[in-house]
Write a protein that binds this DNA or RNA. Sequence first.
DNA 1: ATATCACTTAGAGTTTACTTTAAGTCAATA
DNA 2: TATTGACTTAAAGTAAACTCTAAGTGATAT
Lengths: 122, 122
Amino acid sequence: MQISEVAKEFGLTTDTLRYYEREGLIGPISKGENGIRNYTEEDIKRIQFVKCMRAAGLEISFLKRYLQLFEGGDKTVKERREILVEQRKILKEKLDAMQEAYNRLNYKIDLYDKNILDKKLM
Amino acid sequence: MQISEVAKEFGLTTDTLRYYEREGLIGPISKGENGIRNYTEEDIKRIQFVKCMRAAGLEISFLKRYLQLFEGGDKTVKERREILVEQRKILKEKLDAMQEAYNRLNYKIDLYDKNILDKKLM
DNA sequence: ATATCACTTAGAGTTTACTTTAAGTCAATA
DNA sequence: TATTGACTTAAAGTAAACTCTAAGTGATAT
């Protein structure tokens, strides 16, 4: 699979895919004789994982570290678990903050819908 | 209330509070003869709103626009509602993406806990 | 054959949201 | 009196994550 197809499939730009590769999040992607990247199914799965985690706001540096540990095999399992737990905690806190803001927006919109033009911000 | 107290109460730095003011998200905060900011209850409420929305990832530019409309009074109600709805949509999409990542992390951690050392990323 | 298009690289530039710096005022304490 | 600490300003600097530019290769369409 060529870079533009992968980009299209995931809604990323080719620049971003090359950037992720440079940063060590994916690949190195193997290239044909022409020097053109050819993404395997394994590569695709990894991009899927990265995209999911990036969409949730997990940092490149964390993903890089995690994926490098993954390459390291079974002896890295303990550390891998630790950093996943750490990231889950960070994510949970963000989720809660976002849920609060979401509820607040809902409440406010509801007031507008009911034509309650209060002077309060919230 | 002085800037350092406000900063402490909200877990922001004084730099950030002055930055928000510069950007027109809050204030202008009235100052005593000495030129020192004195935050009113109204200011505090606004900071609370801004903090909540920023924690959820809403952009400074949006908050600025919304709060300026707010200053504009009742004639801005329609537009205010519109941009709240727009932001809610963006927020909902982020929330869903984050929930998905959260579930995925949970699942993965669960596998580690069960000592299922699979070779798959996810 | 020439133009267009997808790909390649290294490296510079951009955006957002702060954060730090430098230089200063003012009040209180050692 | 000297220094410590909180405040002030304008402006420069930083970090993260892209995003774009310039210069080039190679295959296909007119």
